[in-house]
Computed example of a mutant assay.
Amino acid sequence: MEILMSIIIGILFTSATYLMLSKSILRIIIGTGLLSHGIHLLLLTMGGLKKGASPLLGQHASSYSDPLPQALILTAIVISFGVTSFFLVLAYRTYQELGTDNLEKLRGKKEHE
């Protein structure tokens, strides 16, 4: 299972890097979202993909799962959702004011340069 998760994480990192190197603000925002999802999966995989009971008082089981990586990832998901929504609003407002989402045009460079 860890090998499959590693392949999925690699695909997410590769596609996020490709999208973040483009000139469109929307592609960059989607790339950062994919990168954050890849990091969440990486943290979950490094925390261990073990099967076990939840660590509750009074429950007797042979093995328990660690809830700390899951709690940290849940917090990171909420934070990345807030940052992504802020970036989307900022990009929409930039497009309304300037009429483009091309980073080269936003920097003031001409197309033939």
Score class of each variant (00 low, 15 high):
residue 37 H to F: 14
residue 35 L to T: 02
residue 17 T to N: 04
residue 10 G to V: 05
residue 46 M to V: 11
residue 43 L to F: 14
residue 49 L to D: 01
residue 13 F to W: 09
residue 45 T to Y: 04
residue 47 G to W: 11
residue 23 K to W: 05
residue 51 K to N: 09
residue 22 S to F: 00
residue 20 M to L: 07
residue 41 L to D: 04
residue 44 L to R: 08
residue 49 L to K: 03
residue 47 G to N: 12
residue 45 T to R: 09
residue 42 L to D: 03
residue 51 K to T: 13
residue 9 I to L: 01
residue 52 G to F: 04
residue 40 H to E: 10
residue 24 S to Q: 13
residue 14 T to N: 01
residue 26 L to M: 10
residue 24 S to A: 07
residue 18 Y to I: 15
residue 40 H to V: 11
residue 48 G to C: 08
residue 37 H to T: 14
residue 10 G to I: 05
residue 48 G to Y: 08
residue 11 I to S: 14
residue 26 L to T: 09
residue 53 A to Y: 14
residue 37 H to V: 13
residue 45 T to N: 12
residue 50 K to A: 12
residue 31 G to D: 00
residue 28 I to W: 00
residue 17 T to K: 02
residue 47 G to V: 10
residue 28 I to H: 03
residue 44 L to W: 08
residue 33 G to A: 09
residue 24 S to D: 15
residue 26 L to R: 13
residue 26 L to W: 14
residue 39 I to D: 00
residue 28 I to R: 14
residue 37 H to C: 12
residue 31 G to R: 06
residue 21 L to H: 10
residue 31 G to V: 02
residue 48 G to A: 03
residue 23 K to N: 13
residue 16 A to F: 04
residue 52 G to R: 03
residue 16 A to P: 04
residue 44 L to I: 10
residue 41 L to Y: 14
residue 25 I to M: 05
residue 9 I to M: 05
residue 52 G to Y: 02
residue 40 H to Y: 11
residue 25 I to S: 04
residue 44 L to C: 07
residue 47 G to F: 11
residue 21 L to D: 01
residue 14 T to G: 02
residue 11 I to L: 13
residue 30 I to S: 08
residue 14 T to V: 10
residue 50 K to Q: 11
residue 19 L to T: 07
residue 37 H to Q: 15
residue 50 K to C: 09
residue 53 A to F: 13
residue 42 L to C: 05
residue 42 L to Y: 12
residue 34 L to V: 06
residue 21 L to F: 08
residue 11 I to P: 03
residue 12 L to H: 01
residue 13 F to A: 14
residue 41 L to I: 10
residue 37 H to S: 15
residue 37 H to Y: 13
residue 10 G to W: 12
residue 28 I to A: 14
residue 28 I to S: 07
residue 24 S to P: 02
residue 27 R to D: 06
residue 38 G to S: 07
residue 22 S to Q: 12
residue 12 L to F: 08
residue 45 T to Q: 08
residue 36 S to R: 05
residue 19 L to Q: 12
residue 25 I to H: 00
residue 46 M to T: 06
residue 20 M to N: 03
residue 13 F to Q: 02
residue 20 M to D: 04
residue 27 R to G: 02
residue 55 P to H: 09
residue 33 G to M: 05
residue 12 L to P: 06
residue 15 S to F: 15
residue 32 T to S: 10
residue 31 G to W: 06
residue 46 M to I: 13
residue 29 I to L: 03
